[in-house]
Structure formats: structure tokens, C-alpha cells
Nucleic acid binder design. Structure first.
Lengths: 233, 233
DNA sequence: CACAGCATCGAACGTTGTTCTATCGTAGCG
DNA sequence: CGCTACGATAGAACAACGTTCGATGCTGTG
């Protein structure tokens, strides 16, 4: 029996891709089941082509993730630019941060990759610029402006990472919903010694069933209040 | 020739471990070269034993990372508890957050895993309690306290994640130092169109050679200022 | 029609987390 | 002293992954 070894490209119908189709399908996989679902094999199957072809468009998986991230940030940037200006830079900053956060709520996989490599992520850089431009209207020096934007981005990413950590996988399967997952945690907290954990007992009812968006908004509000104070506005 | 297949445990001298030795060596690997360096095979070799033995102590890699994280957070917690109380809860909160952040600066791999699973991470939970206890002395309601601690932890983790992202690997190899790595980024930014990126140009000199600790401290200060305002103190 | 080079592809490689099953070593017991 | 049960250890095998290799198809240009 003849060995058909090392005869690549024989038999199968060829398929032609494009950077855009690669990223679109990559994002689709990420949306469906997060980062673990984005494998070169799964992506190739979805594109109807071979695994190695993808390497013509991206050098490695890291670049694939960076480009996929920037791909969706492009749409978010468009949303941000459509936001009406209120005249108050801090109000505008809040609106932009909320828009950005909403996007990450929709796509929890975004969190860890957002703003990771502005060389590749051109839209992320534009987003950074857009946020920073608001600080130009505040009475701050360059360093304060730099730190202010870093702080706002930090709040967004910090909350996003906190949220984005996949619940062991029962939730992804749909076997257990988020509510129950949180509830189990809360129950474990309630059973702690109240003398040793007074604070945890104080807030456990707030934690149980809490809304991530509320949590984020509060954190953002604290930062913005501090910023307003700093700018004397 | 006799096949020596499927005769495990034959020949090699047996080694006995302990939860503590497993975690200590795991942390050593993480400290040396980050998360990618912590493989079950590398860890087994370091312990002088077999790969599968580690699975008697932890169910999987996730749990290994959670336990390793909590292992070092235990030491940080001890540092935090040694901190002198100033009488001002917000000043104490700042000191604790700084201590926590310093630990993450020393061990960048900590960032993404800190506070991930308080079921396993008992020390992280105690740290959370410790931070929260300061808010009990502020004039806030339970929800505000919950959000305040979340915000502070968010700032720490957000900055830590931002910092912890391994520079492509030239820096890890020591071929390029952090200074030059930042400088290259800054250079790329300087070459952008000033009309399109006025903010980036405004802050590029601040970015170049900036100190992560400064950046973190500023973000923390904004949050704490907002908190002080909220508590009316 | 030949050629160049862009784009695609199957197969193979090395590494990883994890599981399977066999084995060792000792504490308890008669 | 021997036997047994069980806590603990171990090598080999497996499936999945990212990545590389070299060959092959396709298409526009001369």
C-alpha cells in the first residue's frame, strides 16, 4: 500500500481567505466560548481551509489575539466617537469609559488583551488618544494627564479582568447560572466566623447577586471624583 | 527483547513530597520565569519525583496556581498586619494597598491570579477582610463599603495586570532592558501625526521611562480622594 | 506558454495538561 | 513475624495545542 506521506495540498479544494475574514471568524469563536475556543484548528475548519494558512496572516497566536482585539475595538471606537459632547470633560470621560466597559461586558475575553500592544492595536491607541483628549481640557500638567488616563483605563481593565474570569465552566455550559454561582460563594462567606470576618459579613448581602456594572460604575465614580478634585473643576 | 511497557514505578528511587514543598518549588519556578515556566514536568523534576505525583496534591493546574498564589499572599498578609495604624482609615487603606502592590511588583505573575478563587485562597480572603475592615470606620453604607474595597482591589489588580504583561521576551532574556523597551514604544508614538494624536504627543515624554509605582500611586490617590469625599471625612 | 512568487495546505514535531494503572512503603493488626 | 489496606508515588500513554516544514496550487506578467 502506497504511503501518502508528505504530499501536502493534494486532493482538497483550495480556499482563499483575507485578513478580514480571518479576524471575523476568530472573533466569532471568541464570542462563542472564550479564548480557549480560539484554536488554529477550529479557526481553520471555520474558514474551510488548512491550519497553516492562517500563519500567512498572523505570525502567531499572540498576534492573532491582538489583531482580533483591535478588530472589535474599532467598532467600539466608532461608538465612542458618536457620543455627544456635554461640555464637561469629566462627564465625557465617564460616558466613554462606560461605552468601553459595556463592550467588555459583551465580550469578556477582551479584558486581558485590550491595550496590550499599541503597535499592532491601532484602534486601541486611537481609543487611548480619544480618552486623553478630554484631559487636555482639564487644568492639569502632562504627568497628571498621563496618570489620569492610565487610572481610568486601569479601572476599566481591572473591573473587566475581575469579571472576565470564567466561572469554572458550569456557567459556560449553562448548567449553572451566574446567580447561583455567586450565591454559592456568598453562602460560603456567610458560614465564616463573624468575629474573624466582620467586614465580609457586613457586605455579603451586597455581594450576593450584585451587578458588575454597578460595581464598575462606583469604582469609576471614585476615580472621576478624585480627578475633578485634582483639576479644581 | 522484552518490552518494559506499562511497568510504572519500577527502578526509580521514590521521593516523598508535601503540600508545602510542592508550593514552595512552584513559586520558585514562577519567580524565575513566570507562568510559562511552571509546568508539571519542570516542577516534578525540581521535586525529584514523577509528574503524576503532583496530582495527589492538586486537582489541576488552575488549583496549583491558586494555591501558589495564596501561599505567597500569606506572607504579604503578615506584612500588612504588621503595618502601624495611623488612626485615619484611608491612610491605612493606602498603606495596605501599597504593600500589596509592592508584592506584585516583585512577582508580576501574581496579578492575574490574586483574588481569583477565595474558596481556595484563604489568605486572599483574609486580605480582602483586612482591607474592608478599614472601611467599617468610614461613614458609608454596606454597599458603598463593598464598592470601595472592590475599587481599591481593582486599582491594584488593574495596574498589576498592566505591568505584568511580559515584554515579548527580549527583556526576560536580558537582551533588552525595560528602559529601552519603553523607549521604543515612545519613539513610535513620537512619529505619529501630531494633529491626529495631540494627547499622545502631550504625554509621550511622561510615558518614556515612567515609573510603574508612580502610575499606580496616582491611580490609587484618585480613588482614595473620591472615597474620602464620599465618606465626608 | 513558461515562469515567478503569492497563497494554501497536509503532515509532522515538540510540548503541554491530564489520566490510567501499576507499584511501593508503612501503619495497624492477628 | 507475616498480612493487609491504604496513602502516596510513579512511568507511560493520550489528546490537544501552537508551530514549522516542504510541497503544491493558482494567477498575473513577460
Amino acid at each position: 500500500m502506497a504511503r501518502l506521506q508528505n504530499r501536502p495540498g493534494a486532493g482538497r479544494r483550495r480556499v482563499s481567505h483575507s485578513m478580514d475574514s480571518v479576524l471575523t471568524e476568530a472573533v466569532a469563536l471568541l464570542d462563542e466560548a472564550g479564548v480557549p475556543a480560539l484554536t488554529f484548528r477550529a479557526l481553520a475548519e471555520r474558514l474551510g481551509g488548512g491550519v497553516a494558512s492562517i500563519y500567512w496572516y498572523v505570525a502567531n497566536k499572540e498576534e492573532l489575539l491582538d489583531r482580533a482585539t483591535d478588530h472589535v475595538i474599532g467598532a467600539v471606537l466608532a461608538d465612542v466617537e458618536k457620543l455627544p459632547a456635554t461640555g464637561d470633560p469629566i462627564d465625557d470621560l465617564r460616558a466613554m469609559a462606560m461605552t468601553l466597559f459595556d463592550a467588555i461586558v459583551d465580550r469578556p475575553w477582551l479584558g486581558p488583551y485590550f491595550m496590550r500592544n499599541t503597535n499592532i492595536q491601532g484602534n486601541s491607541l486611537r481609543m487611548y488618544e480619544r480618552l486623553g483628549r478630554e484631559t487636555l481640557r482639564l487644568d492639569l500638567d502632562a504627568r497628571q494627564r498621563f496618570h489620569a488616563v492610565s487610572a481610568v483605563v486601569g479601572v476599566v481593565v481591572g473591573s473587566a479582568v475581575d469579571m472576565g474570569q470564567e466561572p469554572p465552566k458550569e456557567v459556560l455550559d449553562g448548567a449553572v447560572d451566574r446567580e447561583e454561582f455567586l450565591g454559592r460563594y456568598a453562602q460560603a462567606w456567610r458560614e465564616l466566623d463573624p468575629a474573624e470576618f466582620p467586614f465580609v459579613h457586613e457586605i455579603v448581602e451586597e455581594f450576593d447577586g450584585h451587578d458588575d456594572v454597578d460595581q464598575f460604575r462606583s469604582a469609576l465614580e471614585l476615580t472621576l471624583a478624585g480627578l475633578r478634585l485634582q483639576a479644581g473643576a
